[in-house]
Design a protein around this nucleic acid. Structure first.
Lengths: 192, 192
DNA sequence: GTATACTTTCAGTAATCTCTGAAAGATCGG
DNA sequence: CCGATCTTTCAGAGATTACTGAAAGTATAC
């Protein structure tokens, strides 16, 4: 009679359900990673470490995600390079464990900082370079005033402004992460 | 003597230099697209239409980017579907032209809105689903209190909060685009 | 030193994504 | 209706990216 209101809750059952829930999350996270230019497996490994909230070793990861040792090793290393997971040595154990940072805000700040550096900064550099290719000192006054050239120059300016502002937002995001990112967020949401 | 201070500026020269600058931008933009999960050619086509600031037809695009008709056609269509370029019929002309939206803020608002819908919303959905798989009504009181399960639940909560706030920021970004996005930006940058 | 336990690397393979080109499908003027 | 012009589609080819598994490398205990 008690069983009609309370689902069966043997530890084995519960563990199975926990795994199901975790896998659901991991799969979805992997899919999302792909559309953001992060390879599926890397995203899945990170999701696994984040969601289980405990250190796992290479074999745990291999087994759980059905991937090879090489694949696991390379992606774990890449995640360490990004700085969003950490290596961990358990005393008395030979093998290495890995754990995810626990603060989502910190994780995404790190990613934001890195992508800004790798992707936004070079674009900004290129835009500036293109603009200089089209200024008077390179083309002469007359040519620089051709309508096509003026038009392209204007578009470059528009794009530069956008990238610069976006960069600043990224910067703020990053520099506020550790000390409670919520400030940035509250300001944003209340002010608008 | 005038030529020593003023670079040669024949229209042909100038056009060549314009093309060089445009190509530089286009290539860089294509590279960036890739790392953000947008295929290189699509990014390049958009960059071309944006930077030339004038309507181009399929053949113009094919020739300029050295791509096939099929490729051009499919990617132009995809860009139209996104809503960041527009079809344009010139009177008296049979063929179709395409032009990019000119306001960068609008372009990125559209992209942000679409990616939110396609990627963030499903993730949020999944997180909620996972949480419900782990609540008391599905596991029973005792099981729901196992430390592993509590830990995963907490991580899901942390992620959900993050996604929700990010969603709101996206939303604001989008709804402010047309009416001068600068408000959002000024608020952000001054407040911090 | 050797044996053991674990990690990393990388050449080859597999999977995925992108592009081409030709054929089929539109659309329009006459 | 036809012929001309332009667009779309899609099967197959090509290019890129990701994965495996075995061999080489590293670290520790003894």
């Amino acid at each position: 009679m008690t069983q009609t209101l309370e689902p069966a809750a043997s530890p084995v059952d519960a563990r199975q359900k926990l795994f199901n829930a975790q896998d659901t999350f991991i799969r979805r996270w992997g899919e999302m990673g792909q559309t953001w230019g992060i390879n599926r497996t890397m995203a899945e490994i990170h999701a696994l470490l984040y969601i289980t909230a405990q250190p796992l070793c290479t074999d745990d990861v291999m087994e759980r995600l059905h991937i090879s040792r090489g694949n696991a090793s390379m992606n774990l290393r890449a995640l360490c390079d990004w700085g969003i997971i950490r290596r961990l040595h358990k005393r008395g154990e030979r093998r290495e464990y890995f754990e995810s940072l626990s603060d989502v805000w910190e994780i995404f700040s790190i990613i934001a900082a890195e992508r800004k550096r790798r992707e936004m900064d070079p674009v900004l550099e290129t835009i500036k370079q293109c603009r200089s290719m089209l200024d008077e000192s390179h083309l002469g006054k007359t040519a620089a005033r051709l309508p096509e050239i003026q038009a392209t120059r204007q578009r470059l300016e528009g794009m530069q402004e956008f990238v610069e502002v976006t960069n600043k937002i990224f910067q703020q995001f990053v520099s506020n992460a550790r000390s409670g990112l919520n400030r940035i967020v509250r300001v944003l949401l209340k002010a608008l």
